[in-house]
């Protein structure tokens, strides 16, 4: 028997062997590259850098973490990052609901396809293109102020500020919220809504008491993306944020790219890892992974 054929029939007869053979390559990739990289980040966060030569010094020191805790600027930056990520998430939940609900419950099949495409196109239009668009819109002589002056209102000075970041992040990740909410609304059995209205509930109360709780996993699934994507960004703060609008990502980026202090950057990046680990554990409890 040809050795390949022999191997194939061996694998075939044992289910676990076939599964293992299929999983070998992706498993090796994720363990050897991705998980190992996160491990390496942990390890190097306890290292230091030779100030003269810039080479990495292995070892175990809490110096990076002490430096992060002793300077209040790093606490402030962390709070700003998490705070904006949270407000972006809430904003996107509010903006996503009408679109998701209309798409699933109100629109006919044709209109529904149109709305779906209308959400998908901005989702996949270049990220940088959309950030750049907002930079042009919010600039002092941009589209927004032009429109305000045309209708007789004063200029707004929200370009290069935390407000700008809040608007742009909410804009960027909105489709990530619409899609899972729509998917979870779609899974609600129509009989539940009929039962609610048969029992005399008004539309709003049905929404609040039946639809909203059942769509919770969808909202949490969307929140994983809106929160995590905001938490891990540094490009948008750089392009539309102002002076003093640094995110955790900006500190990490400049420590890797400019000052070449990888251990310090790694130590600060442990924070979003912890925040997301907590977030994902709660999300799992709420059933968000089935809604992804």
């Amino acid at each position: 028997m040809h050795p390949l054929k022999a191997w194939s029939s061996f694998v075939w007869r044992r289910g676990w062997a076939a599964t293992g053979a299929l999983l070998a390559l992706p498993g090796a990739w994720f363990a050897g590259l991705y998980l190992a990289a996160i491990g390496a980040m942990f390890v190097t966060s306890f290292w230091s850098v030779d100030p003269l030569s810039g080479t990495l010094i292995p070892g175990f020191s809490l110096g990076n973490f002490q430096a992060l805790l002793s300077d209040p600027i790093y606490t402030k930056i962390a709070l700003r990052t998490v705070g904006i990520a949270a407000s972006v998430t809430v904003t996107d939940i509010l903006l996503a609901w009408p679109v998701a609900y209309a798409m699933v419950r109100l629109a006919g099949p044709r209109l529904r396809a149109v709305l779906m495409a209308a959400v998908m196109v901005p989702l996949w239009s270049s990220y940088l293109a959309r950030v750049y668009a907002w930079r042009l819109i919010l600039a002092h002589n941009g589209v927004l102020n032009w429109a305000l002056i045309e209708i007789g209102l004063p200029r707004l000075h929200i370009g290069y500020s935390n407000w700008a970041m809040w608007i742009v992040f909410s804009y960027l990740w909105l489709p990530f919220m619409i899609l899972p909410i729509a998917a979870s609304v779609e899974r609600i059995a129509p009989s539940l809504l009929e039962a609610s209205s048969d029992l005399g509930e008004t539309g709003l109360r049905t929404f609040r008491r039946v639809v909203l709780p059942l769509a919770l996993p969808g909202m949490v699934a969307g929140a994983i993306f809106t929160f995590s994507l905001t938490l891990g960004d540094y490009v948008t703060p750089m392009l539309v944020g102002g002076e003093g609008s640094d995110f955790i990502g900006n500190v990490v980026y400049s420590n890797v790219g400019v000052t070449n202090n990888i251990p310090f950057a790694a130590a600060y990046a442990v924070l979003p890892l912890g925040v997301m680990a907590g977030f994902l554990l709660i999300a799992r409890r709420l059933g968000a992974f089935d809604a992804l």
């Binding site: 891990g232 890797v256 994902l280």
Partner: peptide, 28 residues
């Protein structure tokens, strides 16, 4: 569940984390 979770991690975790982890790994 474990496998689908690990596969999802690179886009579910913040981009800065994936970037930083890879940078640290390559330096390591």
């Amino acid at each position: 569940e474990v496998v689908s979770f690990v596969v999802l991690l690179p886009i579910a975790l913040p981009g800065i984390l994936t970037g930083m982890a890879l940078a640290a790994y390559f330096a390591y």
